[in-house]
Simulated assay, not measured.
Amino acid sequence: MKKRHLAATVAAALVMLGLSVPSAQAATVKCNDSQSKRVALPNKSDLDLDVSLCVFRTSDDKTYATVQISWSAATLTGMVGRKFDGFTVNARLEYRFSSGGNDYINKSHTCDYTASANDMWAATATCKTATTPWDGDLYWSADGQVQWDIDGDGKSWQDPWQLTGSPLLS
């Protein structure tokens, strides 16, 4: 039996017993442990990245995903100059039909933090997808990636850092 049908059956049973149906679901969130990576920058301090992914269900039955990224200089020396020609974070809201099933992308949003990363040697930013209506029959998660093009390294965009998704929210 699908989760939605089970909930409707329980609600009907409560009404028949003269009990009230619980109010709307409170906001919930599932986040993963922080993921870290050091980016080697030529002729300047390396940059340490820390990332956390979260999937949210709001009190008004919407869901969305975030990727929160923090960066900081690895050393106090060499904190000069432009770091990136490009620095982006992609947040994806994904769903599955079962807890062990395949992920499907519902919403995706890419945030360009090139200017911020070049201006600041330490900062935190959050990339957020648009919201979508909550579907209690699905298993929701946050996923994403970080990608950069290092200034002055003679290369273009590096392969994306594929992040480990959040735990499932159902």
Rank of each mutant, 00 (worst) to 15 (best):
Trp157Leu: 13
Asn106Trp: 05
Asn118Met: 03
Ala117Glu: 03
Ser156Trp: 05
Gln145Leu: 13
Ser141Asp: 03
Thr114Tyr: 01
Trp134Thr: 08
Tyr113Leu: 13
Thr124Trp: 00
Cys111Phe: 04
His109Asn: 14
Trp157Pro: 00
Asp143Thr: 05
Lys107Thr: 13
Gln162Val: 14
Cys111Gly: 13
Thr129Asn: 09
Gly101Trp: 05
Gly165Trp: 03
Met120Gly: 03
Ala125Gly: 02
Thr124Lys: 10
Ala125Trp: 00
Asp153Ser: 02
Thr124Asp: 01
Gly144Ala: 11
Ala123Asn: 15
Thr110Phe: 06
His109Leu: 10
Trp148Met: 10
Thr114Phe: 03
Gly101Val: 12
Thr164Arg: 02
Asp153Pro: 04
Ala125Phe: 03
Pro133Ser: 13
Leu163Glu: 01
Pro160Glu: 05
Gly165Pro: 15
Lys107His: 12
Gly165Met: 09
Leu168Glu: 11
Ser108Lys: 12
Tyr104Asn: 15
Thr129Lys: 11
Thr164Tyr: 01
Tyr139Pro: 02
Ser156Phe: 07
Asp143Ser: 15
Thr126Ala: 07
Asp151Phe: 07
Pro167Gln: 09
Asn106Pro: 01
Trp140Asp: 13
Cys111Trp: 00
Ala130Trp: 05
Thr132Ile: 03
Leu163Cys: 06
Gly154Met: 09
Val146Gly: 08
Ser116Asp: 11
Ser156Met: 06
Pro167Trp: 07
Thr126Cys: 06
Ala125Asp: 03
Trp161Pro: 10
Ser156Arg: 10
Gly154Val: 06
Ala142Gly: 15
Asp143Pro: 08
His109Pro: 04
Asp135Met: 03
Gly101Pro: 09
Asp119Phe: 07
Leu163Asn: 04
Trp140Ala: 13
Thr164Ile: 13
Thr124Ile: 00
Asp103Ala: 15
Ala115Val: 12
Leu168Asp: 01
Thr131Glu: 13
Thr132Glu: 12
Ser108Asp: 11
Gln162Ala: 12
Gly154Ile: 07
Thr129Asp: 07
Lys155Trp: 04
Met120Trp: 07
Cys111Thr: 12
Ala117Trp: 01
Asp112Ser: 09
Tyr139Val: 04
Tyr113Lys: 02
Lys155Ala: 14
Gly101Glu: 03
Asp112Phe: 02
Trp134Cys: 08
Pro160Met: 06
Ala122Pro: 00
Lys128Arg: 14
Thr129Ser: 08
Ala130Gln: 12
Tyr104Met: 12
His109Lys: 14
Asn102His: 09
Ile150Trp: 03
Lys107Trp: 00
Ser141Cys: 15
Ile150Tyr: 00
Leu163Pro: 03
Ile105Lys: 09
Trp121Asp: 11
Leu138His: 13
His109Tyr: 13
Asn106Gly: 08
Asp112Pro: 04
Lys107Tyr: 00
Asp103Val: 05
Pro167Ser: 04
Gly154Trp: 02
Thr131Ile: 06
Asn106Asp: 14
Leu163Val: 05
Asp159Val: 07
Ser108Asn: 14
Cys127Pro: 00
Gly152Asn: 13
Thr129Arg: 10
Ala130Leu: 10
Asp143His: 14
Gly165Cys: 07
Ala142Cys: 10
Asp149Tyr: 02
Asn118Trp: 06
Cys111His: 04
Pro133Phe: 00
Gln158Val: 02
Gly152Met: 07
Pro133Cys: 00
Asp137Glu: 14
Ser116Glu: 07
Trp140Arg: 14
Thr131Cys: 01
Tyr139His: 15
Asp103Gln: 08
Trp134Asp: 06
